[in-house]
Simulated scan of single mutants.
Amino acid sequence: MFQIGPTYAWSLLVAVAMNIQCTMAGVGSFSARTKYNIEAPDMGTGRQSAKLSDKAWEDLNRAIRIHMNYVEQLPTSISSVLICGLFYPTLAAYLGGAYVLGRHIYGSGYSKDAARRTFGFYIFFLPLIGLIGGSVVGIEKVLWSYYF
């Protein structure tokens, strides 16, 4: 079985960092909408954004996509760092930290040009796979020891 100890706090800290980072991406999306006078419910593809220049439209949509992509993956990343951290707290903290770093690089690159997001994608996606894998292995070990 597992026991929650003080090292699990690092997994919690990484989860909080993910929440903060996603919120800041939301602030970036809000700032872009404000800059280009795009009001809700237009998400960068509506009538208001049709009046923007191509460059302004791309800037707006990149900011929105940075945030939405994070929102789409936040449940997976946070649950994985918390579950993996129950079994492997140090590993989860390192992989979660790499995920946060990769997300930062992804967002920085994407904000300049959509093609520049690829490097950051690999830096956050590979640790995410590790977190999911660590979660599965940890759960499997507990179930195996309980039932067999």
Rank of each mutant, 00 (worst) to 15 (best):
I4C: 02
I4F: 05
G5E: 10
A9R: 11
W10K: 09
S11G: 11
L12I: 10
V14S: 02
A15M: 03
V16T: 12
A17Y: 03
A17H: 02
I20M: 04
I20D: 05
I20F: 11
Q21L: 14
C22D: 10
T23E: 10
T23W: 13
M24N: 07
A25S: 13
A25K: 13
A25Q: 14
G26S: 05
V27K: 15
G28E: 07
G28V: 06
S29R: 07
F30E: 13
F30Q: 13
S31E: 15
T34W: 06
T34L: 12
T34C: 03
T34P: 00
Y36F: 07
N37C: 10
E39W: 12
A40G: 13
A40K: 13
A40L: 11
P41V: 08
D42T: 01
G44D: 03
G46K: 09
G46V: 11
Q48L: 08
A50I: 08
A50R: 11
K51D: 08
K51N: 10
L52S: 06
S53G: 13
S53C: 09
S53A: 11
K55M: 12
A56V: 06
A56H: 06
E58Y: 04
D59C: 10
D59K: 01
D59G: 10
N61K: 06
N61P: 08
R62H: 00
I64C: 02
R65W: 01
R65L: 01
R65E: 00
I66H: 03
I66G: 02
I66A: 07
H67D: 01
H67C: 05
M68Q: 15
M68E: 13
N69A: 09
E72W: 02
T76K: 09
S77P: 06
S77I: 08
I78L: 02
S80R: 04
V81A: 03
L82T: 09
I83D: 01
I83P: 04
C84K: 02
G85H: 02
G85A: 04
F87A: 00
P89F: 07
P89Q: 07
T90R: 15
L91E: 12
A93R: 00
Y94W: 12
L95W: 03
G96D: 05
A98I: 03
Y99E: 13
V100R: 01
V100Y: 00
V100H: 01
G102K: 00
Y106N: 02
S108M: 15
S111G: 05
K112D: 05
K112M: 04
D113A: 11
D113K: 10
A114Q: 10
A115E: 15
A115N: 14
R116V: 04
R117C: 01
R117M: 03
T118W: 09
G120I: 01
F121D: 06
Y122S: 12
I123R: 03
P127M: 06
I129T: 11
L131Y: 01
G133F: 12
G134H: 01
G134W: 00
S135H: 06
S135C: 03
E140F: 15
E140V: 14
E140P: 04
E140K: 15
V142S: 02
L143Y: 13
W144G: 11
W144R: 14
W144D: 15
W144Q: 14
Y146H: 15
Y147I: 12
Y147G: 03
